[in-house]
Amino acid sequence: MGIIGSTIKPFKATAFQAGKDFFDVTEQDLAGKWAVFFFYPADFTFVCPTELEDLGEHYNTLQKLDVDVYAVSTDTHFSHKAWHDTSEKIGKLKYAFLGDQLHTLSKNFGVLREEAGLADRATFVVDPDGVIQIMEITCEGVGRNANELVRKIKAAQYVRAHPGQVCPAAWEEGAETLAPSLDLVGKI
């Protein structure tokens, strides 16, 4: 798919966030911060609220990591507000929901199911330079795990802050990293 390492494309979307008026978000608003784009098929569905609630349980941790969170579906910002106002699970969430009814973001990230007009279940992590560092796409019936997302973000932030270092499988914050070199070839 060639999207890892690419720069986020220009966009403008209207957001709903609890306690705020509707507001616009563009790629310029991401400058200098990490961002998560958490695509899901639709409001008022089944797996989606469980994932969004799980992500919400990690929102404070993500904020401490200087990560903005954007939930995205092809619904409007009005639908996001209505869902927030009527769902116990969604009503607890503090992060922004972007309306993508024109499919700009879903197309930019390559996750639009054209025949359905819905986004795939997909997650993208964008670094402070607007470069996509992490992506995950699952089938519609399989929910994501926010613990694993947080772990991957910590690893990406570590690698960015420590050039020449990489994080091995299942790396956790504080664990040993690797410095790739010819000396390691065939010894791991």
Rank of each mutant, 00 (worst) to 15 (best):
S181T: 05
E27C: 07
V185S: 10
F109Q: 09
I188Y: 11
E27S: 09
V131R: 11
R160P: 02
D54F: 04
C139N: 15
E173R: 04
K94H: 13
L178Q: 13
T104C: 01
A175D: 15
Q28C: 00
F39Y: 05
K9V: 10
E27R: 02
V131C: 06
R151Y: 02
N108D: 09
F46R: 03
S73A: 05
T14R: 10
E140D: 13
G141M: 05
H77N: 08
G164F: 12
Q28G: 07
K187S: 13
P10V: 05
H103C: 11
L112Q: 10
T76Y: 02
E51D: 13
G2N: 15
F22R: 01
C48A: 04
G110N: 10
I134G: 09
A96H: 00
N147G: 04
C139V: 12
I3R: 10
Q28Y: 03
L65Y: 01
D24V: 09
H162Q: 09
T177S: 15
T50A: 12
D127S: 06
G174V: 05
M1T: 11
C167R: 10
R151W: 01
V69G: 04
A175N: 12
E173H: 06
Q17Y: 00
P163M: 12
L105Q: 01
T177F: 08
K33H: 14
V69E: 07
T76F: 00
T7L: 13
D75Y: 00
R121E: 10
N145K: 00
L30C: 04
S6Y: 11
A42C: 02
C139W: 10
R151M: 03
T45I: 01
A179S: 14
R121Q: 03
Q28D: 12
G186M: 08
I132P: 10
Y95E: 02
K92G: 07
A96C: 01
F97G: 00
G5L: 06
A116P: 02
K152W: 06
V67Q: 10
L178S: 09
